[in-house]
Design a protein around this nucleic acid. Structure first.
Lengths: 151, 151
DNA sequence: AGTCAAATCATACCAAAGTATGACCGTTTT
DNA sequence: AAAACGGTCATACTTTGGTATGATTTGACT
């Protein structure tokens, strides 16, 4: 939220009022303690504490908006969308195949990696394409990434 | 950088020393001005200003590391790497083909989009694969994205 | 004028991808 | 027990992808 000119002006008034109040307190303390023999030291100590507190409060108030928000470019990490995956009825094996397809592997290479036969990979692929409503593996990869099924 | 226990301890010592020095100044001022008739008001004012300054300084010192860096997730926009593209000798047309491949289009569809024949798209593809040192279109897309040739 | 790279097209062939269909085997669910 | 599902494999077929080779055109650079 942006500060208006008025609210800033109000703050200054508050600071002035606070200062005035503090001076009043000091005046009161002066009258109260000046009569005593060692009242001077007490008065000094109290005034010192009060003014230090005022200084601290002032500094905090004035330097409060130092919270700087830095927008840093973050690679935007991958969050697997399990709900989308389940909603489309995609099985674990099909997902594995999709991942390997995204890495540019051929069906044969995928078959080797998963220790299954080529036809198996093909059937997984076919079901995957059907569930993702695509026609080619490249489209499947593209859609898989959009739906956060793969990184 | 993380603060060590020692440096934090050192800071406290500094604050203590500063306070001690301030008291010494006050003592000096007390001796100097107490003899005068209106020395009391002057002494009070000076001590007030000094302690307020101390308070401000303290607050600034203590609340300085309030600068919070918020890491915001940014989609990380696409910056075309023309240097990498030139370095590999990839032509405009080849890049266009790569882009359309990344969108999951078949060679035939790409041919339609670019108003050229199927063999043309194939030769573009073949040269592209050679230049990118890949064997399949899926790998070309994967590598093209890694090299920032396509979004 | 000559060279070169990019772009275009063609033809032919082989490999890979994708489709269709059917079958078998465990789990899990009903 | 039967049904449903996921995973597996196979066979046959069609489509698409990729390779190889060669040819033509156009524009840029020398």
């Amino acid at each position: 939220m942006q500060k208006t000119g008025f609210s800033k002006y109000k703050e200054i008034v508050y600071y002035g009022l606070a200062l005035a109040a503090l001076l009043l307190v000091l005046r009161f303390l002066e009258i109260r303690y000046l009569v005593f023999a060692h009242g001077f030291e007490i008065y000094t100590a109290i005034s010192a504490v009060l003014f230090m507190a005022l200084g601290i409060w002032l500094a905090i108030k004035l330097f409060k908006p130092k919270t700087i928000v830095v927008e840093k470019e973050k690679p935007l990490e991958f969050n697997f969308d399990a709900s989308a995956c389940e909603a489309m009825g995609i099985s674990k094996r099909e997902l594995e195949v999709l991942q390997l397809m995204a890495q540019g592997l051929s069906n044969g290479e995928i078959a080797e990696r998963l220790f299954v036969s080529l036809p198996t990979v093909k059937t997984h692929g076919a079901r995957l394409f059907e569930k993702l409503d695509v026609k080619r593996r490249t489209q499947a990869v593209e859609k898989g990434k959009r739906l956060r099924l793969i990184p």
